[in-house]
Structures are given as C-alpha cells and as structure tokens.
Computed example of a mutant assay.
Amino acid sequence: MSEAFYDSDLTDQEWQIIVPLLPAEKSVGRGQKVNLRSVFNAIVYRADNGVKWRKLPKDFPA
C-alpha cells in the first residue's frame, strides 16, 4: 500500500494475529502479486466506513 494510512488499518500486532489464519501461498503457479495486508485493510476500511467497493480510495489494491 502507498503512504496513506487510515484509522481502520491493522497494527502490526493485529496483523500478526491474522497471518496464521490466511492460506499459505501455493508452491505451483504464478506467485502472489497482491499484498494481503493491503487487501485486508481495504475490507476493514469498507466495513468501518460503509462505502461501496468502487468508492474505495485508489491506494488500495484492485
């Protein structure tokens, strides 16, 4: 994610709780191109602010 930070962004301590719950990256196929923390922050931002997906700030991943 770019330099923008939001009140809804996870702290490092919160992120460390979430990481073990996420699926591991697969050893075959293309590598993961999206930062999962940025995706998770976008989901939390949307839930916290009640905005539509297309109205998310542009610094969140597609």
Rank of each mutant, 00 (worst) to 15 (best):
residue 31 G to T: 12
residue 51 V to W: 08
residue 38 S to P: 01
residue 17 I to K: 06
residue 49 N to H: 15
residue 33 K to H: 03
residue 33 K to G: 05
residue 31 G to S: 10
residue 28 V to C: 03
residue 36 L to Q: 06
residue 31 G to L: 08
residue 31 G to P: 01
residue 27 S to H: 02
residue 12 D to R: 14
residue 38 S to Q: 01
residue 14 E to S: 04
residue 19 V to K: 14
residue 18 I to S: 03
residue 46 R to S: 09
residue 46 R to T: 07
residue 43 I to K: 14
residue 51 V to T: 07
residue 35 N to I: 01
residue 24 A to C: 07
residue 16 Q to V: 06
residue 43 I to W: 08
residue 32 Q to E: 11
residue 15 W to N: 14
residue 44 V to Q: 07
residue 28 V to N: 11
residue 34 V to G: 00
residue 29 G to L: 05
residue 12 D to S: 04
residue 31 G to M: 12
residue 33 K to L: 14
residue 36 L to P: 01
residue 22 L to N: 13
residue 43 I to Q: 12
residue 44 V to Y: 05
residue 50 G to Q: 01
residue 50 G to L: 13
residue 19 V to E: 10
residue 13 Q to Y: 13
residue 34 V to D: 07
residue 42 A to C: 13
residue 20 P to G: 13
residue 45 Y to W: 03
residue 24 A to E: 07
residue 37 R to C: 13
residue 52 K to G: 03
residue 46 R to E: 13
residue 54 R to L: 12
residue 22 L to K: 00
residue 12 D to L: 09
residue 23 P to I: 08
residue 21 L to N: 09
residue 19 V to I: 15
residue 50 G to H: 10
residue 21 L to A: 13
residue 45 Y to L: 01
residue 27 S to R: 11
residue 53 W to Y: 14
residue 24 A to S: 06
residue 47 A to Y: 14
residue 49 N to W: 13
residue 26 K to V: 03
residue 49 N to C: 11
residue 52 K to A: 15
residue 28 V to E: 15
residue 18 I to R: 12
residue 11 T to V: 07
residue 15 W to C: 07
residue 51 V to M: 07
residue 50 G to N: 12
residue 26 K to P: 03
residue 15 W to S: 06
residue 29 G to Y: 06
residue 54 R to T: 01
residue 46 R to Y: 02
residue 24 A to P: 04
residue 32 Q to I: 08
residue 33 K to P: 06
residue 21 L to M: 11
residue 43 I to P: 03
residue 36 L to V: 13
residue 54 R to N: 02
residue 50 G to I: 13
residue 29 G to N: 02
residue 24 A to N: 01
residue 20 P to K: 11
residue 17 I to D: 13
residue 36 L to D: 00
residue 22 L to Q: 03
residue 35 N to P: 11
residue 19 V to M: 08
residue 27 S to V: 11
residue 19 V to Q: 00
residue 51 V to P: 04
residue 54 R to H: 08
residue 53 W to H: 14
residue 37 R to H: 06
residue 31 G to K: 15
residue 50 G to E: 05
residue 52 K to R: 12
residue 24 A to Q: 14
residue 35 N to H: 12
residue 17 I to Q: 15
residue 29 G to D: 03
residue 37 R to M: 07
residue 11 T to K: 04
residue 38 S to V: 01
residue 46 R to H: 11
residue 54 R to Y: 09
residue 31 G to C: 05
residue 30 R to M: 06
residue 28 V to S: 06
residue 17 I to T: 14
residue 25 E to V: 07
residue 44 V to C: 02
residue 27 S to L: 15
residue 11 T to Y: 09
residue 25 E to D: 10
residue 41 N to F: 04
residue 48 D to C: 13
residue 40 F to G: 00
residue 26 K to I: 10
residue 42 A to V: 03
residue 49 N to P: 09
residue 41 N to S: 05
residue 30 R to F: 15
residue 34 V to L: 00
residue 19 V to P: 01
residue 15 W to E: 06
residue 45 Y to P: 00
residue 47 A to Q: 06
residue 18 I to T: 15
residue 24 A to Y: 00
residue 37 R to A: 04
residue 45 Y to K: 01
residue 37 R to P: 03
residue 32 Q to K: 15
residue 50 G to D: 06
residue 53 W to Q: 03
residue 42 A to K: 11
residue 25 E to S: 10
residue 52 K to F: 07
residue 46 R to F: 04
residue 44 V to G: 00
residue 46 R to A: 14
residue 32 Q to V: 02
